[in-house]
Amino acid sequence: MNTVTNPVTPVPDRKKQNKFVRFLNSKKVVPFVFISPFVLSLLLFTVYPAIQGVMMSFQSVLPGQVEFIGMSNYERVFNPTFYRAVSNTTIYVILTVLILTIIPMVLAVILNSKHVRFRNIFRASLFIPALTSTIVGGMIFRFMFSEQDSAVANQFIGFFGFDSVKWMFSPWAAILLMVLLASWRWIGVNILYFLAALQNVPDEMYEAAQIDGATRMQRFRFITMPMLKPIIVFVSTITIINGFRMFEESYVFWAVGSPGNIGLSIAAYIYQQGIQQNDMGFGAALGVVLMLIIFVISIIYLIATGTFKKEGR
């Protein structure tokens, strides 16, 4: 560039700039000005509440009256309702991880093959459910899975000779409803992750395998799957984390009171205790336990899938 040949001389009329402006415009200060509003809001709305959340879990919080009560919030955590919430949430997580990893992967492989036509239309159609809110999606599901014989879900199982089910009032169906709602909304997004990853698999690998006589299934098993491993780990990890945080899927079907807690999730239990019962200290303790659960399971999962080993190399 020609600017390099001209020595950079201070522009004369800049001399009038006062010291403060020059200070603000120095390269040392500028980045801090840029990040300061963000840092302030981060401290106020994330860091402070995070610390406060841990503190609150050791407190009894009533308006104008806060006192430390040691571990007694935590002693109350392990009760039958909590176990119910944990088991509901765990089943939900296992099912969503299986569905939201395997199905999008298979569909992405089909979509990525040269055989499929109208690829963009299919991709867009599968993505559209992600645009709906859980509330609107859940409302539609309530009408599709309502207890009448005439509703879609009962018509469907009736076609195979089963009796109608009261979907929102039987334990296994309650979890299934939440799993189906979440799966319906997220499949399209996960397909996009897999499609992006599939672009990185070189065609030559398939050609070489084909020459060596590998069948279609063998090519999927020994080329596609290993190449997709990082994205499988990524997709299943975010599904696990989001699964343990599940709240809206439960709220949209039963608000906060499902019969016999068949739809209660850990996050819904936090809301119920912390906000509705106004027992903030206990709610905060539940929050800390939830965070530990998420943390431990993510670490175990990442170690089991060998993610850390790969990075350490």
């Binding site: 994330t46 509440p49 343990f244 945080r245 709240f247 850990i266 936090i270 939830l290 965070m291």
Partner: peptide, 24 residues
Amino acid sequence: LFFVAVVFILMVPFEILMLPLFQL
């Protein structure tokens, strides 16, 4: 360091912030 902090904050679940934020 700041960038690492941002990425770390990405992982704090909203459920632990929710009650203290509401108090705030």
